[in-house]
Design a protein around this nucleic acid. Structure first.
Lengths: 163, 163
DNA sequence: CCCTAATTCAGACTTATTCTCAATAAGGCT
DNA sequence: AGCCTTATTGAGAATAAGTCTGAATTAGGG
């Protein structure tokens, strides 16, 4: 476990080192593999707000000389999302994106349902609502995302066909 | 267009009748077909908080004697989501769910990442944040959803394998 | 250093969703 | 009421994200 401060859980997320990741994995009887370290490293060094699909990650790793199989990538990002290390984003495309889950860069998405253009925005209240709600139900919060579906200014002006 | 009260867009959603749906479709050069009417009818008469997958909808329609093809169902729910009539939900399963988009029943989801148990909750502030944010960017709001990923009390007690 | 069980890899497989195209029908026009 | 254009439907093929399988590997405890 990284840190445990129930009064201010926000501080308890993120900043995984090799050691803290190892500890958290071992707590559950799991192992720290080179693949998991490398993948975590990629996400921790990704520019703020940048997110990757499984395929993106696969290509990026390959370009850096790491030959990690696609199945391992899918399993690892899912595992890390379930641990709260990564956020699983459902943006406009038909596949998931992942990014590191750090409160400092915590943000949300405003998506145009017609052209898929996406704007990131921050809002401090959202995290508070998520915190309050999960506490109330006895859940341990990992991540909360506000996703807004809307029509962007440019698409409001044009009449598009259905598909 | 149903209603247009920019100061309080919340009142502008929902309560589609055959006529208002027709008008909104025609506005864009689209048509009102029996299939679209029937599907809208299903969603409008669904119990509050209930949501359907495309497959669910297909089966439900069939059980009521309506033989609407799966492709039409997929196309129609997508169309209605893009019009703001339906909300497209990304819950725990690997397929989308749809429900009518009515402010009165507007709610959000708290999902356990381990067992997928999902709790619905309401929060008035979320809609306000969505409204404010989309206005600020000049977007026309259709829907906003707060999705909380967390670990439920029961799963906090058990140590589960990765997959 | 050994042993057990978790993990990886490659590729087959599953399944939600989209695409294609011929047939149908909505709705504007006369 | 009938015609014409073009959106829409239906059936099934196609696509692609993600999962599963089983043999080989390896992390980490003893």
């Amino acid at each position: 476990m990284i840190v445990s401060d129930d009064k201010n859980w926000v501080m308890s997320m993120s900043f995984y080192t090799e050691d803290s990741l190892k500890a958290e994995l071992h707590e559950r009887g799991w192992r720290l593999t080179p693949q998991r370290e490398i993948i975590l490293d990629i996400f921790q060094n990704l520019a703020a707000g940048k997110h990757l699909s499984a395929e993106d990650l696969y290509e990026l790793l390959k370009s850096e000389g790491h030959d990690i199989s696609l199945s391992t990538i899918y399993r690892t990002v899912k595992l890390m999302a379930r641990m709260g290390i990564l956020r699983e984003l459902e943006l406009a495309e038909d596949h998931k994106h992942y990014e590191i889950n750090q409160p400092y860069h915590h943000h949300h998405h405003l998506i145009c349902v017609r052209c898929n253009q996406t704007i990131e925005f921050k809002n401090e209240s959202v995290l508070k609502i998520g915190d309050k709600t999960s506490k109330k139900e006895g859940y341990h919060l990992l991540d909360c995302q506000l996703t807004i579906h809307a029509v962007c200014p440019s698409c409001q002006r044009s009449i598009l066909p259905v598909s």
